[in-house]
Write a protein that binds this DNA or RNA. Structure first.
Length: 266
DNA sequence: GCATATGTTATGAA
DNA sequence: TTTCATAACATATG
């Protein structure tokens, strides 16, 4: 689930569920999601604290309090759920904060690839030091700086959180498909027109996805088709290509996204 | 058993 | 130095 739009939605959930409320209880059902902090210390340091306005940076969610900050990363399967204490604990609820006002904020994650960190300001800086500029506030010039001099593929550079923070596998494929750019194109070798298309579609795609709270699996989006058997391009109907690129399953339309070499490929 | 899955990081090789 | 693929992490599904 979690790319920038999903984490943005989790930020909204945290804000409406817990901002301004005090933490009454902290229950850790699986300490395997805690990083650099024990369940006991998490409970001691957070109980009685009040959640402040949360922030998002790339795929990280900063749950600020009037004390330390809880840093959350959702890996591939994590989510943040607002519930009531009456609702039974879900099998994948790993940490549950009960706040004043009868609500619970639940960190739910099946695979536990990432988790929670408890940090002060210095720790926060250390953790997020290597993040690139946030994709949601990227300027055209900012994109130029991200791509300039990069010899790697568009796919790998746009996925690289230290180059540009927030985009994941689905979003990058979606944006490149809309911009009609082949994922294996060299990032630093775009024409002015291609650069403009990439920037426009990056902004447009992110705006829609953030509004939807996810990368919407609509039929008019690549994301809505990519997992269909015999998937075809929503724009031209050509059979989609699929290959491992930059370590991830990558989907593109060979007709809309020419690879720049004569003859194309499959 | 095999391959796949929206993420990150360490490692070794070009 | 940069970039790539790969394995690892933990779990579920087809």
């Amino acid at each position: 689930m979690p790319e920038l739009p999903d984490v943005e939605a989790f930020r909204g959930i945290l804000a409406s569920c817990a901002q301004g409320r005090r933490i009454r209880r902290t229950e850790v059902y699986d300490a395997g999601v805690l990083h650099g902090v024990s369940a006991g210390r998490l409970r001691r340091e957070l109980t009685g604290r009040r959640f402040a306005e949360p922030e998002r940076r790339g795929k990280w969610l900063l749950a600020r309090t009037d004390g330390p900050t809880v840093l959350l990363h959702f890996g591939m399967t994590g989510e943040l759920v607002c519930a009531t204490p009456a609702e039974p604990v879900h099998a994948h609820d790993r940490v549950v904060f009960t706040v004043t006002g009868g609500r619970q904020l639940r960190y739910r994650d099946q695979r536990k690839l990432q988790g929670l960190w408890l940090v002060d300001e210095a720790g926060l800086d250390r953790m997020l030091r290597d993040q690139g500029p946030d994709a949601a506030t990227l300027t055209r010039q900012g994109l130029g700086a991200v791509l300039a001099g990069r010899r790697g593929s568009l796919k790998s550079v746009l996925m690289d959180q230290s180059a540009l923070a927030g985009l994941g596998n689905l979003l990058v494929d979606e944006i490149l498909w809309r911009a009609r750019l082949h994922p294996a194109r060299r990032a630093g070798a775009l024409s002015a027109d291609e650069h403009g298309r990439l920037y426009t579609e990056l902004r447009r795609t992110l705006r829609s996805a953030v509004r939807a709270g996810r990368v919407p699996p609509r039929g008019s989006w690549l994301t809505g088709r990519r997992d269909d058997p015999g998937a075809s391009c929503p724009r031209c109907g050509t059979a989609l290509c699929r290959k491992r690129l930059a370590g991830r399953g990558t989907v593109w339309c060979p007709d809309c996204q020419p690879d720049g070499t004569a003859g194309g490929e499959t």
